[in-house]
Design a protein around this nucleic acid. Structure first.
Lengths: 193, 193
DNA sequence: CGGTCTCTTGACGGAGTTCAAAGCTAGTGG
DNA sequence: CCACTAGCTTTGAACTCCGTCAAGAGACCG
């Protein structure tokens, strides 16, 4: 809970938030590496805030290949937002990439939260405003840059994060095949030497 | 102003909003077709809510080709959010695709608005929550589908909108060249007959 | 009517995918 | 603590989608 309180203070710029007011809305949970937090096609009941570790959101395409849409390391929120908001079945699965601790909130309490805790109205407004701006940037990256350039940009921006995740998963996130990622890595090594 | 009030009521589910409270925050403006509302490289001072008509957000790439990032038809908000929020120069231009009426708000009043009008806190939270969810879907579309499939999906989802915009602009939004769009259209016509 | 801007057509090339097979690594059970 | 196996990563060849270039046909504005 402390991790969330810190994040709220950081985002809203307010100090002295009583964590105990927020406690009843959430459940604290721990998952082992590779544990599934949400399965494709099932009801989407939870929204997760990552305290420690890392999650990924993915689906399985027509060829049976897992395609990763989003990562959520520490201090990120993750769910199939569309399904969660509208009470639909999730189009995605969520899996822990590492041993991960989360705060989980259900749709009912998520709806109450901003109404009962006014600061959360502001908190979520700012969180989404940022997330939206970041996603717009990503749309641009994906559609304007070559896959090679996108890979290099990602590699230079999040070098330590690349150590944490399997290449296969990274390839699907960046939007190409593991084979091609392998080729890019090879080229890059050759250039450096 | 009426158009914004209706949108606020629709999004928040609240009735009876006093439009006169909101009036001092905004300026009502009209633009002719092809008018520029914002120019690449200049300060990003305004956030636009489209009352009537349609705007587009674009930049000019290294080859001098205009690349369209977003459209904003009636009831959409549009600006370079990153530049607007952080007081930076805009990386994009904004142009009217048709004769367009907007409500414009500057960064100062935009910051005050949710603080002074509590309902707007909720309104913007919901607007961004939706926009974020929609953009995530778009990221998926762009990166997982072939350009052909993406075109067909867009064509089936927004047939009337496609009539409103030049093909060149549509091609850059969908992420490919006008030449290739032309080829796709041809293929589709042949299939239908 | 002209002239410019937009849309179409076709030839060609290159980036990225698919398929198949061989080396590597890491987790598992004995 | 080692050996085995399943999955991950690398390699290479063939192929496909889509961008680039160039040139012609329409469409729109003065």
């Amino acid at each position: 809970m402390q991790a969330l309180v810190e994040h709220i203070e950081k985002v809203t710029g307010s100090g002295n938030i009583g964590g105990e007011q927020l406690l009843p809305y959430f459940e604290e949970r721990s998952y082992a590496k590779k544990a599934m937090l949400q399965e494709e096609g099932k009801a989407c009941l939870w929204y997760f805030f990552v305290v420690k570790g890392c999650l990924r959101l993915f689906f399985t395409d027509d060829n049976g290949v897992e395609q990763t849409i989003q990562f959520a390391p520490e201090q990120w929120w993750l769910t199939d937002l569309d399904a969660f908001r509208n009470g639909r079945r999730s189009a995605y699965s969520i899996q822990a990439l590492e041993a991960t601790e989360v705060l989980a909130i259900d749709a009912h309490r998520y709806a109450l939260l901003p109404e009962e805790q006014p600061l959360m109205q502001k908190y979520f407004r700012l969180v989404y405003e940022r997330a939206f701006a970041a996603t717009l940037l990503r749309v641009q990256m994906i559609s304007r840059m070559s896959k090679n350039d996108f890979y290099e940009l990602f590699a230079s921006k999040y070098p330590e994060f690349m150590q944490r995740i399997p290449q296969k998963v990274l390839a699907s996130f960046l939007g190409f095949t593991p084979e091609y990622l392998s080729e890019l890595r090879k080229k890059k090594m050759e250039k450096k030497s």
